[in-house]
Nucleic acid binder design. Structure first.
Lengths: 248, 248
DNA sequence: CGCGGATTTGACCAGCTTCAATGAGGGTGG
DNA sequence: CCACCCTCATTGAAGCTGGTCAAATCCGCG
């Protein structure tokens, strides 16, 4: 099912140029990266990497959404990360990973052969530093998620998830500029995948969607869309501070 | 309640010399570190850092156990990390952290002033690389914990916790060398703190301890000790693969 | 138009939390 | 040395949330 797609794009024209590992690379470094990179596309639902599989490549997500997940023998699974464009797959100095990486939507990766990439990391502090920043960002996200998984109610989990999508979609004006107009969100995953992300069952996810809809906080026009009708009520339902933790 | 304790120890005599940030430093780098470091001790229960507080120091844990935790406005809290000797507090390139750091037991830290430490990180790839490794280890631990918080039952959580302590205490022979003899574990935290770590209530923690005791899997001679009577049954109860995920 | 997967909804139940009372240590002061 | 107290821990009973099982519905697609 894998569809290799080696049509490369110039780094200078890359949509994630300014946020990915290569964010702070100079022209010369970009040339070096250009030589070791290749694009590759995975259709929604396919496995990008299996747990324990040796990593010959590291990669940046160029477009689409991929997920990291852990599975127990009896089939219970928990998503432990969501990879959006500019996020990085693989880790310097480690030959394998302890979770599965799956294409949630169609995903295009910018793959780098492992050996030359590691050499580049050693040579260029830019890249090493950027990798560190990306790792620390992931760590912060993982810790926020631990609070959600360990302590939030089903309703709070769903509200937090939708609020996160709304923020990510940049449909909320950065400065507190009053209530944003009704915002349509695209859900990149099925109810089952949302459940695995939030540590719930798909039935509970569905019920909470229905409850928020009944209360007029959201609308669900089709299975892949959510319209946020009242962002303030949604944020109240997340259990977080209204302002996202920033001191007023 | 904070008891500053500036009695320094030579790096060469440091108990965590081979595992902390400074693990791969050469003699010259150690000298540089020596100049910017100071030891500091915090009694059990005191706050080492508050969320959002500016970080003037970064530090390594020399002895004792510290915890990272997040708290919601209504008081629900979730521990998002446990810091053991050689673990690192603080992050290069970030002036503050998004969680509280608390001394779980009496804790001694090896503190480095932030500015000179960051300069050192930029100059010395050894240190930057070691920091990256420590961050990736934390990320792996965080993801394991996400699976636990999102999908494991109370019984599995307690069993996983005890199994982790047993492994950390190195009371289990590395190679599968038959059943280890009964092993006494010291619990570094109260039932309430264990509950916050595992995403449970303290009553549930207590009940699961009692259940495992009733089944003859563990003994609980006093509130700070657990004796593992049958490590195989304990590991069966964790929900993980018997061999901890390593391929047989 | 009918098929198949995804979703919604309902009914029931289990596990965990909540509320409440009792018990065990450990330290302090008389 | 012992009584007292305070914190931590255990145990019980009852209630709720979310999970499980099952059926109905929706929707995209050939």
């Amino acid at each position: 099912m894998m569809i290799p797609d080696f049509v490369d794009v110039k780094c200078s024209a890359c949509p994630i140029r300014h946020r990915a590992v290569c964010a702070r690379c100079d022209t010369e470094e970009l040339l070096r990266l250009e030589k070791m990179k290749s694009y590759r596309t995975f259709p929604a639902g396919t496995e990008i990497l299996w747990r324990g599989e040796p990593l010959d490549y590291v990669a940046s997500v160029v477009s689409g959404v991929a997920s990291l997940s852990k599975t127990m023998e009896d089939g219970r699974t928990q998503m432990v990360g969501l990879l959006l464009p500019s996020d990085f797959i693989g880790r310097p100095g480690r030959a394998k990973i302890e979770f599965d990486v799956t294409a949630t939507t169609d995903v295009t990766l910018c793959c780098f052969a492992r050996a030359p990439f590691e050499a580049l990391v050693i040579d260029t502090p830019h890249v090493a530093q950027r990798l560190m920043e990306l790792a620390l960002d992931e760590l912060d996200a993982a810790r926020d998620w631990m609070l959600l998984l360990g302590r939030k109610t089903a309703r709070e989990k769903i509200a937090t998830f939708l609020d996160m999508l709304a923020r990510r979609s940049q449909l909320i004006t950065p400065k507190g500029a009053g209530t944003a107009p009704a915002a349509a969100l695209h859900l990149p995953m099925t109810r089952d995948q949302i459940a695995n992300y939030l540590g719930l069952t798909l039935e509970t996810v569905s019920r909470q969607f229905s409850a928020l809809k009944r209360e007029g906080i959201i609308d669900v026009p089709d299975r892949r869309s959510v319209i946020v009708i009242n962002i303030d009520l949604l944020q109240n339902a997340t259990g977080d501070d209204a302002d996202g933790g920033v001191v007023a």
